[in-house]
């Protein structure tokens, strides 16, 4: 219990919030990394998934990519990238690693969502004279939106986690508070950093939960 009290006291100390190593700066770094990399990964993964799903091709790739992504340790990729010439570019390795790990869930969920759209509905759209583009935007994307959003949510949570591990490989973000705490052998700081990271992750998850509840429900059946 005393550790929790100490961690709380650590969080309450205004000196720990200010400056480049302060909580405020680390929080903003973490937020910026998550948002920028989520946008980048969506820009890369979603067009590919939508086109593949529309054409019904490359399914094995889209599905297996997610499984392969799980087998590759985030930490290993971060360190490997750090030792390449990319490592000299400040947050470069972190951004690349974050995008690499956010793309598979986005790709898999969007692809599966597109393929799960009722084939009868797609054929009906064709029969009504819709072009491929119209079918994609007016039928397939709206119907697969819940699955696409689910992929974005998984990717966002994954991004928060990966950005935390990035601190082990010298990246910025809230994880730095934890690693600095380990270096100082300060358990209160480690726990305080962990509480911040866990809180951040839960808020991100909560935001997506709220968005999914507020979004209009077009799901069919169970």
């Amino acid at each position: 219990m005393t550790t929790l009290v100490d961690a709380w006291a650590w969080l309450g100390d205004p000196a720990h919030w200010a400056g480049d190593d302060g909580i405020r700066h680390r929080l903003l770094q973490h937020l910026a990394l998550t948002v920028v990399c989520l946008a980048l990964s969506c820009a890369i993964a979603l067009p590919v998934a939508l086109v593949l799903g529309h054409l019904g091709k490359g399914g094995a790739l889209a599905v297996n990519l997610s499984n392969a992504g799980r087998a590759v340790p985030t930490f290993a990729v971060l360190v490997l990238l750090l030792l390449t010439p990319l490592g000299r570019w400040g947050e470069g390795p972190t951004v690349v690693a974050l995008v690499l790990f956010a793309v598979p869930p986005l790709l898999t969920n969007a692809y599966v969502g597109m393929r799960e759209v009722d084939r009868g509905v797609v054929r009906a759209a064709r029969g009504m004279g819709m072009t491929g583009r119209q079918t994609l935007w007016r039928v397939e994307v709206p119907l697969s939106l819940p699955m696409i959003l689910n992929g974005v949510r998984i990717a966002a949570v994954q991004l928060v986690a990966t950005a935390t591990i990035a601190a082990l490989a010298g990246g910025g973000g809230l994880g730095r508070i934890i690693t600095a705490g380990f270096n100082l052998a300060s358990t209160p700081q480690v726990v305080a950093g962990a509480v911040l990271v866990a809180g951040f992750a839960l808020v991100v998850e909560g935001i997506f939960e709220a968005v999914e509840r507020l979004a209009p429900h077009r799901r069919r059946g169970p």
Binding site: T3, L4, V157, V160, A161, T164, I165, A167, L168, G175, I178, G181, T187, V190, V191, G193, A194, V195, V197, A198, A201, L202, E205
Partner: peptide
């Protein structure tokens, strides 16, 4: 269990440190 799964691994290990 969903809440537990959302917590990043580095934070999870750190929370268990005490």
């Amino acid at each position: 269990t969903t809440v537990l799964y959302t917590i990043p691994s580095l934070a999870m290990f750190s929370l268990l440190l005490p």
